[in-house]
């Protein structure tokens, strides 16, 4: 499985998600989104975005944009990063093998 972390430098959220992925033991590649053209080409709804084999782990109908992505936690709070338990569950559903839980 190819796990990708897509991020945009105008948003400070992606190091936290990179840390989540490392904590779950998931190898991943990073792809920096630099321009609006990049965002459109990659169908990038905001930073950070995690994809497995090209599929967004948290499907969104937001248009491509250079922006911070909004995640909604299990208790309804807004967050710039996904809940780590939801990230773990999404990775498992996508068929990823986690070497750490």
């Amino acid at each position: 499985m190819a796990v990708e972390l897509l991020w945009w430098a105008g948003c400070p959220s992606h190091p936290a998600v990179a840390e989540q992925l490392r904590g779950l033991g998931v190898p991943f590649a990073e792809l920096e989104i630099v321009s609006e053209e990049d965002a459109a080409r990659e169908r990038f709804p905001g930073s950070p975005t995690v994809r497995v084999d090209g599929v967004d782990l948290f499907p969104s109908d937001e248009p491509p944009s250079l922006t911070c992505r909004i995640y909604v936690l299990g208790d309804g709070r807004f967050s710039p990063v996904p809940d780590v338990d939801e990230l773990r569950a999404a990775l498992l559903r996508a068929g990823c093998e986690l070497t750490s839980t």
């Binding site: 959220s13 922006t67 911070c68 992505r69 909004i70 995640y71 709070r77 807004f78 967050s79 710039p80």
Partner: peptide
């Protein structure tokens, strides 16, 4: 539209 602004709102 910012998750940080919403989280602290």
């Amino acid at each position: 539209h910012c998750p940080y602004a919403l989280a602290w709102h």
